[in-house]
C-alpha cells in the first residue's frame, strides 16, 4: 500500500515533528509514503478560495494531479488542507463546467485532472484501510493508564457529505476515539469535543478572541475530563492548543497546561519513534506524558 503525503504549510514549517511522525508510523504499518514532489499550498481558505472558485480549484487540482499521475490517494494531517482539497474535489466532481475550465488552465502545464485520487485525513485513512488489530499488534508501547481527551477538528467532520472517510455521526465522532483506544488509552468524554479550537482565520484576525474561544473549550476539557493529554486529529488544532495555553496561563486565564499531541505523533511514540524527532517541538511540555508512555507502560 502506498499513499501520497500532503504535508501542508503548518506541518512543514511549524511542526515538522508531526511530519516526521507520519514518515515514521505509516511505513511501520505497511503504508509506503510518496512525497508528491512539487506539492504546493492546498490552497488555504484565506487565499485562493477567497478570490475565486476556478483559481482555487486549479491550484488544488494540480496537487491532485501529482497523486493521480502516480495512481495514488492523498493523506493529510492538516484539517484545512483536507477540507480545501476535499471541497474542490467535490466541486470538480459535480460541476463539469468548472472541471473544463480548470483543465483548460492545467493544459498549459501539460497536466490533466481526472478525478481519480481521493483525499483522506491521516487518522481516517488508517481507520478505513488498516485493520485496527494490526495497529494493536505493532505497538511497542501502550497508552494503558493514560487518560486522553480528544479534539478531532472541525474539518475532519464537516461538511461530512464531501468526505470519503466521513464519520457516521459527525456530531459524535468515534474514529479518533477508536484509534486512541487501540493504543490502550482511556478516552474521557467532554461536552465540547466538537467545538472549534479558534485557529485559522480567527487567530489571524483577532488573537484575543481566538484564545478566549479556546479557553471555553479548555475549561470543559479540564473540568469534565481532566486528561493527561489532548489528542488532535488536525495539525492546526495541535498548534493552537499547544501555543495558546502558554499565553492563557501567563494572562492568568487558566491555571493548568495540558500536553497536546497530534494522533500521528502519539502513534509514532507507541510504535517506538524517537521522541525528539516525532514530538520534539511542543511548546506545552509533553515530556511527562512521553516518560509515562515509554517508561512505565512497557509492553
Amino acid at each position: 500500500m502506498k499513499v501520497g503525503f500532503f504535508i501542508g504549510c503548518n506541518t512543514a514549517f511549524n511542526r515538522p515533528d508531526l511530519e516526521q511522525a507520519v514518515r515514521f508510523s505509516y511505513p511501520h504499518l505497511g503504508v509506503e509514503i510518496d512525497d508528491l514532489e512539487g506539492q504546493s499550498c492546498c490552497p488555504s481558505w484565506g487565499t485562493m478560495p477567497s478570490v475565486d472558485l476556478a483559481g482555487w480549484s486549479a491550484v488544488s487540482a494540480r496537487n491532485f494531479c501529482l497523486a493521480e499521475e502516480k495512481d495514488l490517494d492523498i493523506v493529510t494531517v492538516c484539517g484545512s488542507c483536507y477540507g480545501s482539497l476535499a471541497e474542490t474535489r467535490h466541486s470538480l466532481q459535480k460541476d463539469p463546467d468548472l472541471r473544463e475550465k480548470v483543465n483548460g488552465i492545467l493544459e498549459g502545464l501539460g497536466r490533466n485532472y481526472r478525478g481519480s485520487a481521493n483525499v483522506y485525513q491521516s487518522v481516517g485513512y488508517l481507520y478505513k484501510k488498516i485493520d485496527i488489530d494490526k495497529v494493536r499488534q505493532s505497538l511497542k508501547y501502550s497508552l494503558a493508564g493514560l487518560k486522553v481527551a480528544l479534539q478531532p477538528g472541525c474539518h475532519t467532520l464537516w461538511p461530512s457529505k464531501i468526505y470519503v472517510d466521513r464519520e457516521e455521526d459527525s456530531f459524535h465522532p468515534h474514529i479518533l476515539k477508536d484509534m486512541c483506544q487501540a493504543l490502550g488509552a482511556d478516552v474521557a468524554d467532554y461536552s465540547r469535543m466538537t467545538d472549534c479550537c479558534g485557529m485559522g482565520g480567527m487567530r489571524s484576525a483577532d488573537m484575543e478572541r481566538s484564545f478566549n474561544l479556546l479557553n471555553v473549550k479548555l475549561k470543559s476539557i479540564k473540568e469534565e475530563a481532566d486528561p493527561d493529554l489532548i489528542v488532535t486529529g488536525c495539525s492546526s488544532c495541535l498548534i493552537q492548543i499547544d501555543t495558546a495555553q502558554g499565553q492563557l496561563y501567563k494572562d492568568g486565564k487558566i491555571k493548568f497546561q495540558i500536553p497536546v499531541l497530534h494522533y500521528m505523533q502519539l502513534l509514532a511514540l507507541c510504535l517506538g519513534g524517537e521522541p525528539e524527532k516525532v514530538a520534539g517541538l511542543a511548546k506545552t511540555s509533553v515530556s511527562g506524558v512521553i516518560n509515562k508512555i515509554r517508561g512505565d507502560s512497557n509492553v
Binding site: G83, H155, L157, W158, C196, G198, M199, G201, S204
Partner: peptide, 10 residues
C-alpha cells in the same frame, strides 16, 4: 475574514 471555515453551519 475571521471565519474558521469550520463548515459546521453548512
Amino acid at each position: 475574514w475571521a471565519c474558521q471555515s469550520c463548515n459546521r453551519c453548512t
